[in-house]
Simulated scan of single mutants.
Amino acid sequence: MKKIGIIVLILCMQITFAQVNRFVYQVTMKSDATNKNDVKTENAYLDISQDKSVFYSENRIKRDSIIQNTFQSGGARGFNRDQMESLRSNINYTIEKDKKNQKIYFKDRLGRDMYSYEEDRPLNWKILSETTKIGDYKVQKAETDFGGRKWTAWFTTDLPYQDGPYKFSGLPGLIIKVEDNLGDYSFDLMKNYKIAAFPTMNQFGNTIKVKRTDYIKQQKKFYADPASFMTQGGGGFAQTRIGGGGISGPRGNGGGNPADFRKRMEERVKDDAKKNSNPIELQ
């Protein structure tokens, strides 16, 4: 009986450690430099396990689910465009933190491919003595300069995670709230719960590994000429490609005119560029 009890305890521990803790943040953004009254708000997930964490938009996983179900039930002709439009996100990137190797990876789609880079700038925190309470958590203040902005964070040691939303991490506890001094961006913890495992995200095209500075150059090219990124080797840049499954043409347009699809895509990208003229990282 003693051996059985030990086995059960071990299994319970394995199940506990295998679980992923999901923290839901409300993200508030003033991403349009020409209209600071346009305040966008949406939820994002920070999923944490022993080995890694992933930060991404709640709408991203909802869109992925719809896409997956649509293709399984009959293909792109069954697409509900209004539903997809309602789930458009201002958080199109994904950030993964490798806890073992202390690495942060940023991923974002530019046209047909996913671009990925390793963050090369450290977060140097100044921990202050000021404390307060946010919700149920006792929190402590910390400050840092990152991406051309000054950030103030509030972290708690009540939760055993040295992590936080976006690229923020490295404090002695979980970041409950973080905002820049201009009030353009803020991340506020709303709730948390456990999930069985990290969700599987749809991966179309190739994943292209670049340096951070090269990603910024490619992003500027994409905003200027998005159509060139829909063809093989778009952007005219030599990269390391991982995996396959590339998109050979404008799929998902319901069999419409390719020229019309390209025009709509260019207009949308340029409109998005205008609406994101005040990015979270200024440099």
Rank of each mutant, 00 (worst) to 15 (best):
237 F>I: 15
196 A>Q: 10
187 F>P: 06
148 G>C: 04
136 D>M: 13
161 Y>D: 00
167 K>Q: 01
140 Q>H: 10
137 Y>W: 12
132 T>I: 05
160 P>D: 06
174 L>D: 03
131 T>E: 15
202 N>S: 12
147 G>H: 02
162 Q>F: 01
189 L>R: 00
154 W>V: 03
141 K>N: 07
222 F>W: 11
232 Q>H: 03
155 F>P: 04
182 L>V: 07
162 Q>P: 00
225 D>E: 07
188 D>N: 14
211 K>T: 11
207 T>W: 05
228 S>C: 02
207 T>F: 04
128 L>K: 15
218 Q>M: 15
161 Y>A: 01
121 R>F: 13
195 I>L: 08
142 A>V: 04
236 G>M: 05
230 M>T: 02
124 N>P: 00
145 D>N: 15
148 G>R: 03
211 K>W: 02
209 K>S: 12
218 Q>A: 11
123 L>M: 11
211 K>M: 14
206 N>Q: 11
122 P>D: 01
217 K>E: 11
210 V>E: 13
215 Y>S: 00
206 N>W: 14
205 G>V: 02
158 D>P: 14
174 L>S: 00
181 N>A: 06
148 G>P: 04
173 G>V: 03
180 D>C: 08
147 G>A: 01
234 G>Q: 06
217 K>Q: 11
146 F>V: 00
203 Q>F: 06
143 E>D: 14
152 T>L: 03
230 M>I: 03
206 N>K: 13
194 K>V: 10
130 E>H: 03
123 L>A: 09
174 L>R: 04
146 F>G: 03
208 I>L: 15
121 R>D: 04
205 G>Y: 08
130 E>S: 13
199 P>F: 03
148 G>A: 04
178 V>I: 15
226 P>G: 06
181 N>M: 01
233 G>M: 13
188 D>C: 05
231 T>L: 14
164 G>M: 09
124 N>H: 12
127 I>W: 07
173 G>R: 07
174 L>M: 09
202 N>H: 03
206 N>F: 10
187 F>Q: 10
158 D>F: 04
207 T>R: 12
232 Q>V: 14
181 N>L: 11
196 A>N: 09
190 M>L: 15
164 G>I: 01
165 P>C: 06
125 W>P: 03
146 F>P: 05
122 P>Y: 02
190 M>H: 11
166 Y>M: 10
137 Y>I: 06
210 V>K: 01
136 D>T: 13
175 I>G: 10
228 S>A: 13
186 S>N: 14
135 G>V: 10
167 K>I: 08
184 D>S: 10
149 R>A: 01
184 D>R: 06
134 I>L: 08
196 A>R: 11
175 I>T: 07
150 K>W: 02
122 P>A: 01
174 L>E: 00
172 P>E: 06
204 F>D: 12
221 K>D: 09
156 T>S: 12
217 K>L: 14
151 W>K: 05
165 P>F: 00
